[in-house]
Amino acid sequence: MRVLLVEDDDGDALLVEALLEEASAPFVLSRAGTLAEAEEMLADSECVLLDLGLPDSHGLAGLHRLLAKPDAPAILVLTGHDDEQEGINAVAAGAEDFLIKGKVDGELLLRGVRYAVERRRADFAEFQLRETSLLAAEQSRLERGLLPPPLLQGSDVGLDVRYQPGGQRMLLGGDFYDAVGMPDGTVHAIIGDVCGHGPDEAALGVCLRIAWRALVLSGAPAEKVLQTLDQVLVAERHGEGIFTTACMVTVAPDRRSARYFLAGHPEPLLIAGTQIADLPQSKIGVPLGVLPDYAWTGVDVPLPSGWSIACYTDGLIEGRVPDDVDRLGVERLSEILHRQLQEGPDWMDSVIAEVTELNGGALDDDVAILLLKDGK
């Protein structure tokens, strides 16, 4: 155990060394004569024996300075015979304990150092656990905002969703989705991805998802929804370069046609039975937050009997492929999906599992899939 003695008095320093030798303590003892020297040596120490009367510090000022250092070690304060109250004050200020010079033997000093170090470790572990718990709770709230229950009660359009966090689990992403059924039978859906990972990106995704639901429920024309979301993004984002990709789909009340809009997002996949149908040529459009006053245009698609529309975020196509420098891509994803469709209708988990296996482990980015299905 590495112990740093901060003591300017040679006699007191020799006494501490003798006490540790008397107890056969397994310590590596270093010494600093001033607080400035101690600050330079602090990173290599597990415990500090601190005299409160130093040439460049007096009283609790030195203790406060050391405790303010990142990852400060355990600190035991050394006081004189008449300074017991100062030792008590030091403990109240953050020291692990205090010892009175001249009233301590080697065994007591040994136990004091060991206790101080273990208590410091326990406090640090408790702090980490509390921070982790708070982070997990915050991420859970953000995920509920990003991935809400859809508003499709009474609709004949089925909905299936999947969400898989990326490999860096503690860095929550900004993938979001939502679906809303209107009184006239129209069904609207959106899937989006805020660039980057972290609580700011996730919070922005929640903001956009809530704004989208509000706009749809208010009856705003589909052509205007993305333009308004673009304005919301620019107003709410935390950095100038933050953008969001999105795919928005509107299914007509008769279920015979759909219109989709792309804002820099991968094109959806139209599934007819066990086949992937070709979509009309579309203009992908720029992501939200890139060009002011940009007008996104929709693409009309006739829907075959038994149709499904699969929308997904790019985490699904950006995985690695063995012996290939390119990413998976849409073409390979379509091949995987076509093969899995032959196995049965429950293909979503199988596709994610195969893409993950090809990647050689957990995907770097979050994956979200939203599947709209003809319920007639």
Results as ranks from 00 to 15, higher is better:
residue 137 A to V: 03
residue 60 L to I: 06
residue 49 L to A: 07
residue 204 L to Q: 01
residue 308 S to T: 11
residue 105 D to T: 04
residue 99 L to H: 04
residue 42 L to E: 01
residue 123 D to F: 08
residue 368 A to N: 01
residue 361 G to A: 06
residue 64 H to R: 15
residue 14 L to A: 15
residue 244 T to Q: 01
residue 75 I to N: 12
residue 267 E to V: 11
residue 161 V to W: 11
residue 77 V to S: 13
residue 61 A to P: 14
residue 58 H to C: 07
residue 213 R to P: 13
residue 291 L to R: 15
residue 313 T to C: 00
residue 264 G to M: 08
residue 185 G to Y: 12
residue 178 D to T: 10
residue 333 L to D: 08
residue 48 V to I: 05
residue 80 G to Y: 10
residue 89 N to F: 07
residue 213 R to V: 06
residue 114 R to W: 02
residue 65 R to K: 13
residue 332 R to P: 01
residue 192 G to T: 04
residue 81 H to D: 10
residue 266 P to M: 11
residue 181 G to V: 14
residue 258 A to V: 10
residue 49 L to Q: 06
residue 307 W to C: 05
residue 369 I to H: 04
residue 350 S to H: 12
residue 191 I to A: 11
residue 133 S to D: 12
residue 286 V to G: 13
residue 32 A to R: 02
residue 236 E to C: 02
residue 217 L to K: 06
residue 311 C to W: 07
residue 45 S to R: 10
residue 196 G to K: 07
residue 362 A to C: 09
residue 141 R to S: 09
residue 323 D to R: 15
residue 241 G to R: 05
residue 308 S to D: 09
residue 86 E to K: 15
residue 24 S to C: 12
residue 188 H to T: 04
residue 165 P to V: 01
residue 23 A to H: 11
residue 287 P to H: 08
residue 95 A to I: 00
residue 120 R to E: 08
residue 2 R to N: 15
residue 64 H to P: 13
residue 317 I to H: 08
residue 259 R to G: 11
residue 284 I to S: 14
residue 106 G to W: 09
residue 27 F to K: 08
residue 255 R to A: 08
residue 276 I to V: 10
residue 322 P to F: 07
residue 149 P to E: 09
residue 359 N to P: 03
residue 375 G to M: 00
residue 352 I to Q: 06
residue 40 E to L: 10
residue 363 L to T: 00
residue 253 P to S: 02
residue 90 A to C: 03
residue 133 S to K: 12
residue 12 D to A: 14
residue 236 E to H: 09
residue 227 Q to C: 03
residue 116 A to M: 09
residue 28 V to I: 04
residue 234 V to K: 10
residue 25 A to C: 02
residue 73 P to A: 06
residue 2 R to K: 15
residue 38 A to S: 02
residue 40 E to Y: 04
residue 21 E to R: 13
residue 108 L to R: 13
residue 227 Q to P: 05
residue 185 G to E: 09
residue 78 L to T: 01
residue 142 L to T: 10
residue 294 Y to A: 09
residue 218 S to T: 01
residue 362 A to T: 05
residue 121 R to E: 03
residue 42 L to Y: 08
residue 163 Y to I: 02
residue 312 Y to T: 04
residue 363 L to V: 02
residue 330 V to L: 14
residue 305 S to K: 15
residue 241 G to T: 00
residue 126 E to W: 14
residue 86 E to W: 14
residue 89 N to C: 01
residue 119 R to E: 13
residue 139 Q to P: 10
residue 228 T to I: 01
residue 269 L to H: 07
residue 232 V to P: 05
residue 188 H to G: 03
residue 339 R to G: 08
residue 362 A to F: 08
residue 223 E to M: 02
residue 298 G to T: 05
residue 112 G to V: 00
